[in-house]
């Protein structure tokens, strides 16, 4: 399992600079926002957390379809499914999700504070947004794994995966954004939405790999 994790992280970093493209996409989305909204610093600071969240959401959906497709192309997916008698397949999927998150989504979380500067956000709000992203993005990856597994046999499933996953991640977006807002505006407590976000993440960590494993088994035979 550890070997699989390390292998996947290495592949994810090496293969066509997937992580870099994700961060670039994130940067592009955030950089374009002021042109659409106007350079008003106060307004940007106010919508900053929401923009960061939407950017991170789109950027992390971007690479999701490659989660199983690369393995399917070189045949190692069949090996993983064959080996499911020894290792539980959902666990394997879980590890693959973690590796994908480390390789291509964690850079987004790291980049978020820098982009927060561009959006003229206060240090506290920036920190809170990065923290919510850290807790929320795994949920996107886990539930996205189910979508990616369902569409794995499609040659061009990328857009479809995003369309399938987007309605399911709305709760994550809601709690993530409201937690980061609650941190910067005083009266609202930060903890309840943040804990809800964590609970969602843990819940999806169970549901996503399970569903993905069932889907992968179906796609292989």
């Amino acid at each position: 399992m550890l070997a699989l994790y390390i292998r996947d992280v290495k592949l994810g970093i090496r293969a066509g600079g997937g992580a870099l493209v994700g961060v670039l996409f994130f940067l592009a989305v955030i950089a374009v926002a002021p042109f659409a909204i106007g350079p008003d610093a106060n307004l940007l600071a106010r919508i900053g957390p929401a923009m960061l969240w939407i950017g991170a959401l789109l950027a992390s959906l971007l690479g999701l379809d490659r989660l199983f497709q690369v393995d399917r192309e070189d045949g190692s997916l069949d090996l993983l499914i064959l080996g499911s008698s020894r290792h539980m397949l959902p666990l394997t999927v879980f590890v693959k999700c973690l590796a994908h998150w480390t390789a291509s989504v964690l850079p987004l979380v790291v980049a978020a504070p820098v982009l927060g500067l561009l959006m003229n956000m206060s240090p506290l709000a920036t920190f809170a947004t990065a923290l919510t992203l850290l807790a929320g993005t795994p949920a996107i990856v886990f539930i996205g794994a189910a979508g990616a597994a369902v569409a794995v046999s499609l040659p061009r499933g990328g857009l479809l995966v995003s369309v399938l996953v987007l309605p399911l991640v709305i709760p994550v977006l809601i709690f993530g954004v409201s937690a980061s807002y609650a941190a910067s505006t005083q009266p609202d407590p930060f903890l309840p939405p943040f804990l809800m976000l964590c609970a969602l993440m843990l819940f999806f960590a169970v549901i996503g790999p399970l569903a993905a494993a069932v889907a992968l088994k179906g796609a292989s035979d």
Binding site: I143, A146, G147, A149, V150, A151, S153, L164, P167, L168, I170, P171, I174, F175, S178, M196, L200, F203, I207, A211, V214, A215, G218, A219
Partner: peptide, 28 residues
């Protein structure tokens, strides 16, 4: 065969999510 399985999984994941979505949207 394949599309049946895929759609079934997606539907079930959706049905698990409906209460969560409902709750979170109301909260929001």
């Amino acid at each position: 065969q394949r599309s049946a399985r895929a759609a079934a999984i997606l539907t079930l994941v959706g049905v698990i999510n409906i209460p969560i979505i409902k709750f979170s949207v109301e909260w929001w």
